[in-house]
Amino acid sequence: MKTRFRPGSFFLSAYGWLFLTFIYVPILLIVVFSFNANPVNMMIWDGFTLDWYRTIFGFPTTLNEQTLYVESTAQLYSAVLNSLTVAFLTTLVSTIFGTAVALAVARFRFRLKSFYRALMFMPMIMPDIILGIALLIFFVSFGFSLGLQTIVIGHTTFLCSYVFVVVSARLADMDESLEEASADLGADGWTTFRRVTLPMIAPGVIGGAMLAFIISMDDLVITYFISGVDSTTLPVHIYGMLRRGIKPEINAIATIMLLSSFVIASIGLYLRARKK
């Protein structure tokens, strides 16, 4: 019975692998062709080279001047630095805000609770272009100068929602009587938070923070509207490069970004697996 060939299940399996191919082949192509020596047509293999990586790191290359499309590496570096700065600050603030609201909603009874739920839900379902233009109008009409600070503010408005959702899920799993037990055993509110609540929800807080960091690093649309001239982030920088023309060194940049995404995702998954 068991060994009978079942066409339905065979085709489903074949489809499953095809699906995964569809997801991963485009990504693999970038990696493979980032080592392609052909400077004229990026998609025709012409031998292995590390030149594109050398280019973006500012090392001398074997390519002659004609084929070099060197964008200013300084611009690229400053974009990376901007992205990291924004992501770091955004993560810090939105993790605190998101966790605080999650605690309030999970552990207290108050009349405006459903309002806060809606408020934290709204930025997640709002098309990002709307938030982008709304923030742009707001900043300009109130005389904020556009720059890293406006990007941090803009990212925080929607990223505390993500932290809120992740931490809330964790809080819902946590037995409230643990906090009562701590108070009963003589710990005041702050001690209880530090010794019981925080260690219990730490995976949620860390998870939410990592999510916020990744999304902030990757955000293009909102940043595109509210970044000033001198405060380009990495995605906005690459978007600009792509609009000006497709150049081989973008492959190399993309590959490095892929690599760091994998590293971050793996760390996150490792932490989660270890918790269990």
Partner: peptide
Amino acid sequence: HKRPVNTVFQRYALFPHLSVARNVSYSLEV
């Protein structure tokens, strides 16, 4: 936390992130 009474909770409410000894020592530590 300022009352001289302690409670054994219905489902115990033991701190899962602490060892047995650290659970028992909790009130003395704080």
